[in-house]
Nucleic acid binder design. Structure first.
Lengths: 129, 129
DNA sequence: GCCATTAGTGTCAGGAATGATACCATGCCG
DNA sequence: CGGCATGGTATCATTCCTGACACTAATGGC
């Protein structure tokens, strides 16, 4: 996601939908935010445990972008070994209903999508192979 | 967006958030869905008018993916010149609260994000240049 | 015969996003 | 002195996304 999509917000009424998506459409951003709604303060290493499929580089990227967009704050304690805390900003907290809507829908419907059926087929094909 | 991100839905409780995002995280999918909530039946050319920045190829891609995911239906009338109608499926209609949440947030907060400020700076820089 | 229409498809190219891997700083512990 | 811990960077390669452009089919109208 998250390339720059449009540079202006003037493309018809639905445009802010896209604008919102640009903020957390990144590959792992929604998940990062989700975990911060569950646990208000997280350290880098804790993210790594919660998102085991994300490489360190990706995680750093996504966190920095969320920070740059003002959705979360990064607090560095100048100690050794390093200690860094991430938490939602006030603006970030306002995203809660959005993430919540995504989760609610996913919990209800994700397993009924065609995409999901394809995934299951792929998996069983791999198992039988 | 939306390459295939994870193949299973087993990665902790927030995973369905990501799964949902995979469905319409594509560059223009949310906007396509949004327009279909406004106007229940749209033809290919009407999308082109509403999304002037999207190339024909991209629009085709995104529509096909949404169709493949069972979120919208594509009805071809075998006439000349071609006539194709797109509308939401029942599953697609269930996404309305999600898109609505995205739009509500965007309308309220998009203009207060750091990203938005950066965009405005870039624009004025281009103007003065 | 020639052009316009609609909804595409095919090909090519460039750039962005992502992943893998290796490497770094610093202070404590033994 | 050597290794560990934490939170990263740097570099390279690859894959994916996106755009530009040209091309198509079948019919109606001039």
């Amino acid at each position: 996601m998250p390339r720059t999509r449009h540079t202006t917000l003037n493309c018809s009424p639905g445009c802010t939908v896209e604008a919102t998506l640009e903020l957390f459409g990144g590959k792992w951003k929604a998940l990062i935010l989700y975990h911060l709604f569950e646990e208000p303060v997280l350290r880098f290493g804790e993210f790594r445990h919660r998102l085991p499929n994300v490489t360190q580089r990706m995680l750093t990227n996504q966190l920095r972008e969320l920070e740059a967009d003002g959705l979360l704050s990064r607090t560095v304690f100048p100690v050794v070994p390093p200690h860094v805390e991430y938490r939602l900003t006030d603006l970030g907290k306002t995203l809660k209903p959005v993430i919540q809507a995504l989760k609610t829908w996913g919990d209800q419907y994700a397993h009924s999508t065609e995409r999901d059926k394809r995934l299951k087929q792929d998996q069983s094909a791999q198992i039988t192979a």
